[in-house]
Design a protein around this nucleic acid. Structure first.
Lengths: 182, 182
DNA sequence: CCAAGTTTGTACCGATCGGTACAAACTTGG
DNA sequence: CCAAGTTTGTACCGATCGGTACAAACTTGG
């Protein structure tokens, strides 16, 4: 038996590469190496369930690797810095796209609206908390947290559009410097 | 005769709302009020040609209303400020999505890669020029120009994800202030 | 080792996809 | 006003869509 967990990474890549509508069952089947029978055995709810599970797994990954450390760090400034590194590695400097961001921009936002909202709201909240605990006042922390998430998402867009990952790294270097200084 | 020009706004909205793959000819036909006969009469190249034309029209709009003014402004600082206002109105504070950004994130980037690249490259270049002529050095101008485009794209993503246009206006207010100050 | 349960591949479903063919309905020029 | 050219709606094309049915192939427990 191959469980859902084993199929999710390949599934995620298909959705990332082709979007929800563009990810046909034929592509999904090829990418996962699973026939339709197996896919519908693992995900009785079909494509919608596959996408839900992928979003959930991504959410879990971010919660565990980024949000929780930000909230609980003893040295919050270091946690923020570690987040920048983890995010850069995860999105491969903009070569890899943010699936949750794509869903937010697409017409599937309504279908997965709450998952998308929660992912970004918790990101901003965790970052706000870390920034505040590292010595900023509440308003400045909230503003900077929002700006950081915005710049990450925007840098992915621009780096991909210009097909130039240095756009991503350059923006993040400047942003990290401002975050450390502020 | 209804020309291409009259059909383009409705076409653009369909592509914005559903992406390239999700924009079926049935949706396009409904949105434009044109039957297949008319659509293929206007756009013999089918969906690909429709999308090309839409991207070209968007490009023309940005070139004429944003890039050219930025490059030619006698008072470049005012041109930058006017750009912020025009962009906020165009994207309706993030309620409306950037079609070129969406294409950049999708698998259609390869099909329309050069159009996407050029749109963003010229945006950054025009902004760099205006910032430089308003008294910044070359390096600082280039960095800030890139950051502005990044924040615009990111703010659209986050505002839509959180379903909260104030995210967009808030980010832009802070960015405008920094741009004016710098 | 075999029976019961699970997983898998294949064939098939109706619906819809993008695109074509083409006659009927219009518009236009003389 | 009519002939020539243009535009339009409709019917249709094969391909693919997401999803279902189900028998054959496997796995597992006793």
């Amino acid at each position: 038996m191959t469980g859902r967990a084993e199929a999710l990474p390949a599934l995620a890549e298909v959705f990332r590469a082709h979007g929800y509508e563009g990810a046909s069952l034929a592509l999904i089947s090829r990418a996962t190496g699973l026939g339709k029978g197996s896919l519908y055995n693992l995900f009785p709810g079909g494509k919608a369930e596959m996408a839900s599970c992928v979003l959930e797994e991504i959410d879990n990954w971010f919660e565990h690797n980024l949000y929780a450390p930000l909230r609980q760090a003893e040295r919050p400034a270091e946690a923020v810095s570690a987040m920048f590194d983890a995010v850069e590695a995860y999105f491969r400097s903009g070569r890899r796209v943010c699936l949750v961001g794509i869903v937010a921009l697409s017409s599937e936002r309504d279908r997965f609206g709450e998952a998308v909202r929660s992912y970004f709201a918790r990101w901003v909240a965790a970052l706000t908390e870390a920034l505040q605990r590292s010595g900023r006042d509440a308003a400045a922390s909230a503003a900077l947290a929002e700006e950081i998430v915005i710049q990450i998402q925007g840098a992915i867009v621009l780096a991909r559009a210009l097909d130039d990952p240095t756009v991503y790294t350059r923006a993040m270097t400047a942003l990290k410097a401002r975050t450390a200084a502020g």
